[in-house]
């Protein structure tokens, strides 16, 4: 049989061309996916919020102060929000409930290790990546619009804000871990996760600064970890909160984290006792 008659040889080049184009397309698509999922995450909502405030302050008149906030201060707040929202742990990084629902946790349970370590690794990866992207976002903003951008008032404020953010993000992670583990009982917990995100983002100040809410609402929300995770770190960077406030926030976050850790252990232990191992 000659080379021209061998089907494998005849189709080699066309197939190679097609398969190469396919692989290239796949890789480019993965890159697009990375840009969309990781770089684009959390960028739009703060900008939408800025536009709403812009319209509101225009109607209030030049130099208006609405419940202690001027428009330039709100611009700085939104700049901070762009970074904080990125670095704060998001449920999309955890797929524990799906693993429980489909029975895929089983393979980890027979391994000589604590499953929680894998989830912590996910938290670490997410935080490192998003802090890097957040730093990039902050740098671009500082270069493009330095007159409006948020610059930390001091190194101490920066350290305090970062500590609050990381500890608050850990609390978010524990909350999501517990909610995911509820899949042992509820099978599907997707809507619970979204629901909690609505509450965290509203109570934390992702829609408007918590200190701009009515005083009675503020007094309640300042005892919750979302406030110390989103709104407070930005206000620390702006110099609106002092070192004593940071210490108070750290205390609230530490107590919250300890409580959540205790709940996580109980939920995981009891959930495993119910776990059938086969999934749905």
């Amino acid at each position: 049989m000659t080379a021209s008659q061998d089907p494998a040889r005849r189709t080699f080049w066309p197939l190679l061309r097609q398969a190469t184009a396919y692989e290239l397309r796949k890789q480019v698509a993965f890159r697009v996916g990375f840009v969309v999922r990781e770089l684009g995450h959390g960028l739009v909502e703060p900008l939408v919020m800025l536009c709403v405030f812009w319209a509101l302050y225009r109607s209030a008149g030049e130099g208006a102060v609405l419940r202690g906030w001027t428009f330039p201060e709100l611009v700085q707040y939104v700049a901070g929000l762009l970074v904080v929202r990125k670095a704060m742990f998001h449920n999309r990084a955890l797929d524990l409930s799906t693993q429980i629902f489909e029975g895929r946790v089983t393979k980890y349970l027979v391994m000589p290790m604590d499953y929680f370590v894998l989830a912590v690794a996910r938290f670490t990866q997410y935080t490192l990546l998003q802090l890097g992207i957040g730093a990039l976002t902050w740098t671009i903003g500082a270069l493009v619009a330095p007159e409006h951008w948020l610059f930390p008032v001091s190194f101490g404020a920066c350290a305090g804000a970062l500590t609050l953010l990381l500890l608050g993000s850990w609390c978010c992670f524990l909350v999501y871990y517990i909610l995911n583990a509820l899949a042992f009982w509820l099978d599907v917990v997707w809507s619970l996760l979204v629901m909690v995100w609505f509450v965290i983002s509203f109570a934390g100040g992702a829609l408007l600064p918590v200190s701009q809410m009515p005083p009675v609402v503020f007094r309640v929300l300042e005892y919750g970890f979302p406030y110390w995770t989103i709104s407070a770190p930005i206000e620390v960077l702006m110099g609106r909160l002092a070192a004593a406030d940071v210490a108070r926030g750290l205390a609230i976050l530490a107590v919250t984290a300890a409580l959540l850790e205790a709940v996580r252990r109980v939920v995981w232990r009891r959930g495993l006792a119910r776990y059938g191992g086969a999934g749905m």
Partner: peptide, 17 residues
């Protein structure tokens, strides 16, 4: 609803564009 309620409650004469 709460967000817009709070925004409009900041002052009586406010509008959004």
């Amino acid at each position: 609803l709460l967000t817009f309620q709070i925004l409009y409650g900041l002052r009586d004469d406010l509008t959004l564009a």
